[in-house]
Design a protein around this nucleic acid. Structure first.
Lengths: 311, 311
DNA sequence: GCCCGGCACAACCGGTGGTTGTGCACCTAG
DNA sequence: CTAGGTGCACAACCACCGGTTGTGCCGGGC
């Protein structure tokens, strides 16, 4: 199916005749006739009834028309999404089910008129490069990693502290606990496949390990969260960390437990990053929205790495 | 832009390599390569970075991907809309801004999961034929026109009584009235272009004229509601009837007045029609919805033609 | 360093989709 | 009733798009 054909259908439906549609599309009447005939053949229904003074929509044609218009609208938005200049606000998040996506959903609910595109970059270095090049407009990252200060043309504001929770299977030694302290975790194996050395999240967990003497294993390839949850559910000796706001997709609950961690509660500090000179009008709206929506975090009894800037 | 190309892009993005995408699409790797290259050329951006073990999305590619998926979803729905068997519920309404559209909007709000297609047929005869052929699933019409009884396989229920209002320009003699009685309208010219003899709405207005001695002119071609409103606004001697729930689109208010009519208030009786044997599951939902939403009409002091069945 | 996996380029070819030319049906005016 | 005009469809022709096969190049891994 070809969008030119769809457009031809819409123009012909609006014009009420093929002749005029052909003129508008700068092709011959015969070409319009053939396009419509091909579309009708591929759909298996008649879209127009041909009359002596034009062509009018059949019932099927009337039903199809709004869908055809929608198709053209979506196509236009798709093209605009990669068109430099007045494109949707492009935001980099950690993962599609992370707390950051929750923030973006909240922003979308508050400003449904603002077009958004969400991408997921590798690490803060990639994100900063993308911000500077204009490839993205904003990024959620943990900032101020030692040895990797933000360039001065990149600004940031801390928008959300997310508590970490322990995720275990039903047979894990701590599965029955209402909550666990960090010191209780020493000696337990915590498995976090997919941690890549050199990234800002690796730095976060490295600090967590160093400060509290935890055992975090990053071994094995990351086969996705499904495989991770599968293994956690079936392996009594393994647990993992997960943000409290992470939305798990777990068809039948395999007995997974989400257990709060205390004394102190490790929190992951999400900051919004943007380029000082980014002119996208929606960026200011996003910043304003997050400024209001992000209150009430950073409580006592929590832990972040020492390099995290105060709020 | 070709939807096959879009599908190729999505499959390649999911697969992470052209080779596998080609196998899934049953074409050669070279064909995929050419399709992607053509898409990139037409969009003016690079969508994939080619690596030694496949192709991964660029930032632009990541931004484009959800739009591409949406495009395929919309295309699928478009095809389904004309596909016999498990297609959206297809409802015939009088006009896109009529009270019936309001009912359908309410239904859609109550049941957003039900797919709807709205068409506008010529008159009740066409609608009944379309109901019997299965081309539509339901129709809003005024029923029981003399000499045109419903076939026994078509069922109906009265769902909404809509009061008529007088619409005048600012210079009309009645423009200042808070309300007018039907008898006051005698002698005034009421203009309703587009009334086609033989239709059920023509029968309604014919009865209205006969009963109260009004003057309704149906002269002149119907150039659409914009042209009608334009003329009404500028012509002191002309007024027209309009349903109280009709949504007017009138950029800058040209001083149009909507004046209630009383003693009695003419109301247009909207009934829902459907075929006795129509198996569409959403049809029962629509009937149930309208049964609850349609209460509180049919008040005293209103008028309908004698042939209208009691509620 | 060699092999292998994966993408791109080249050459070739068939079919799709455009054009011009023409016929036919229907409406309308005289 | 007929003649003319309008508008769509069919036929023939042709160019180019989009597929194939064949091959080269690049990068990673044993």
């Amino acid at each position: 199916m070809d969008l030119d054909t769809i457009r031809t259908f819409v123009v012909a439906a609006d014009a009420g005749q093929f002749q005029e549609a052909a003129a508008e599309l700068a092709v011959t009447q015969q070409a319009v006739s053939k396009r419509i005939a091909a579309l009708e053949r591929s759909l298996g229904v008649r879209l127009f009834t041909r009359t002596a003074r034009g062509a009018e929509l059949t019932i099927d044609g009337q039903a199809f028309l709004p869908h055809a218009r929608e198709l053209l609208r979506v196509a236009e938005r798709a093209v605009a999404s990669v068109h430099t200049g007045r494109r949707p606000l492009r935001v980099d998040v950690l993962a599609s089910r992370s707390a950051q996506s929750g923030l973006m959903r909240g922003f979308h609910r508050a400003h449904p008129e603002i077009e958004l595109d969400v991408v997921m970059l590798f690490d803060i270095e990639t994100a900063v490069a993308a911000l500077r090049s204009g490839a993205i407009d904003a990024s959620f990252r943990a900032v101020a990693v030692p040895g990797r200060p933000l360039p001065e043309d990149i600004e940031s504001v801390r928008v959300l502290d997310e508590s970490l929770q322990l995720l275990t299977g039903p047979a894990h030694a701590l599965a029955g606990a209402r909550s666990v302290t960090v010191s209780q975790l020493a000696g337990h194996r915590i498995w976090m496949p997919g941690i890549v050395p050199g990234t800002e999240w690796a730095a976060y967990y490295a600090d967590l390990v160093a400060e509290f003497g935890l055992t975090i294993e990053a071994t094995g390839p990351n086969f996705g969260s499904d495989a991770l949850l599968d293994t956690i559910a079936d392996t009594p000796a393994l647990a993992t960390f997960m943000g409290e706001q992470t939305r798990l997709v777990w068809p039948a609950d395999h007995g997974l437990r989400r257990i709060p961690v205390t004394d102190p509660t490790p929190v992951y500090p999400h900051s919004l990053l943007w380029h000082r000179d980014n002119p996208h009008p929606a960026l200011a709206t996003l910043r304003a929205h997050l400024a209001t929506a992000a209150a009430g975090h950073g409580a006592a009894g929590t832990w972040t790495p020492g390099w995290v800037l105060p709020r």
